[in-house]
């Protein structure tokens, strides 16, 4: 090959990568926890501080864990989608109220509706750190054995729910 073509070939490769780069989101960080056991926690429940929410109690079923907060804008965008999904009864969504005030969180759920059978409280953000949460909302799909199967970063939208979450849940249910 002509050595004078070398710069051009390198450039073509770089442009190819830059082109692919345009379709990617550099802020979305894949979780190393997918495929691993769900980190254990035992957090007080929002509506009953005496009781706890813990993955151990949810073994044997497929469930979603949704990190949210009343101060988070993306959560409001996502909320109708969660309400819809909860209504469909496809899969239970457990909530984790992340770094929030109890009264504000309750007021928020009163106002926009409550899709969660149980909401845990993570006041200090520790559970969030164990889940590798770096921005709310984030949603995890957890299978019957307590293994994380999928992580949604940012708000769920109807399309993702229909094309990713529901088929995945169905498949995990049948296992």
């Amino acid at each position: 090959m002509n050595r004078f073509l070398l710069p051009l070939s390198i450039f073509v490769v770089v442009v190819g990568f830059l082109g692919i780069g345009l379709t990617l989101n550099p802020r979305e960080i894949p979780s190393p926890l997918v495929g691993k056991a769900v980190p254990d926690f035992s957090q007080p429940q929002l509506y009953d501080r005496e009781k706890v929410l813990s993955p151990a109690d949810l073994k044997g079923k497929v469930w979603l864990l949704n990190f949210w907060a009343s101060w988070c804008n993306g959560c409001k965008t996502e909320h109708p989608v969660l309400m819809e999904l909860a209504k469909s009864g496809e899969v239970p969504i457990y909530g984790m109220d992340y770094k929030d005030q109890q009264d504000e969180a309750m007021a928020w759920l009163r106002r926009w509706g409550n899709p969660y059978p149980i909401v845990g409280v993570d006041e200090a953000g520790r559970v969030g750190i164990n889940f590798g949460v770096y921005g709310v909302p984030e949603t995890y799909v957890i299978d019957k054995q307590g293994v994380i199967r999928y992580k949604q970063i940012g708000p769920l939208d109807p399309d993702t729910v229909a094309k990713k979450i529901i088929p995945l849940v169905k498949q995990l249910e049948s296992q």
């Binding site: 002509n2 073509l5 710069p7 051009l8 450039f11 442009v15 082109g19």
Partner: peptide, 16 residues
């Protein structure tokens, strides 16, 4: 990106 490809790609082709 397209502009880059034309300007730089063109120059490097001319160079080659």
């Amino acid at each position: 990106l397209v502009f880059l490809a034309i300007v730089i790609g063109g120059s490097l082709a001319l160079y080659a």
